[in-house]
Design a protein around this nucleic acid. Structure first.
Lengths: 147, 147
DNA sequence: ACAACCAATGAAAACGATTTTCACTTTCAA
DNA sequence: TTGAAAGTGAAAATCGTTTTCATTGGTTGT
């Protein structure tokens, strides 16, 4: 890892070591807060900004990517072997992954038809998971608009 | 429109009238700021919050939907006849649409395989448009991490 | 038409996640 | 070892979004 970072032009530090380890130890779709909490378990002196900066760094060196579901928080998703999409439950906010390998050629074709150079694909389905479907009530004819 | 809103349980107001007109007059993928600016051209007294609330309202009554590209601003996309995806240029931030009608059945199948009730599909391709490809330099071996 | 009720508005403040600043420390290459 | 450049931590700044609150103004029933 130290060598890998060096080839990218970055230095290894103790904090970085812990942050990287924690990030790759956690599952997918990690938020800054989650990683910060995790890192703090092993070192109470590491600051929030450092965790944030390293999450950005991990993306910059190509080991993860940001995922935005529109709920106000950025998640960081480890880049895995296979491209995948997300099912995002509007009820419990849970993310489920699904394979999208076979969709990529089609999307690539769409892009090149527009002379567009693709960098990344994002496929998301929002809705309600099995558990939340029953609990979810249709908010019909709202009596007032409260936001 | 007045009648339509009434059936949904909302009132028509002069401000609402102007905001709706401006929104449907503008193209797709409108931001709050853009709509606010547009609305202000015809009425300097309309507040930002009102524009924002009405954009939310337009979504609530099913005439538009929020689009999040991960660049920090929410865009509001008029719901059109055909489902579509977006090509988002990381250079000039321009959005290009493309048809996704034939992809929907596949995604619906993915969802139901997980017993997931889909509410919306999002397909996005990030990259660089023809114009920006030449101007875009590969930020290789950064000399320092500045954010 | 009138009153009463409740939604809508505008300005400003609150929020909250993200990003930057700054002074200080650490890494790494020469 | 030593200097230059990168990294860190705490705090503050940003910035888009959302809420609050007092006031205005539609809508409905009489």
């Amino acid at each position: 890892m130290r060598e890998f970072l060096k080839t990218k032009g970055f230095k290894m530090t103790p904090q970085r070591e812990r942050i990287f380890k924690a990030f790759f130890g956690l599952g997918q779709h990690v938020t800054v807060d989650e990683l910060y909490a995790k890192v703090r378990e092993s070192d109470r002196s590491i600051g929030y900004a450092t965790v944030w900066r390293n999450l950005k760094l991990i993306c910059k060196v190509g080991l993860a990517e940001e995922v935005n579901l529109g709920d106000g928080v950025t998640r960081y998703d480890r880049i895995t072997r296979e491209p995948h999409g997300h099912l995002f439950c509007l009820g419990c906010k849970k993310l489920i992954e699904f394979e999208t390998t076979e969709m990529v050629p089609g999307l690539t074709a769409v892009a090149s038809a527009q002379r567009f150079k693709p960098e990344g694909f994002k496929i998301e389905i929002t809705g309600y998971c099995e558990k939340c479907q029953s609990e979810h009530k249709e908010a019909e004819t709202p009596q007032a608009v409260r936001w």
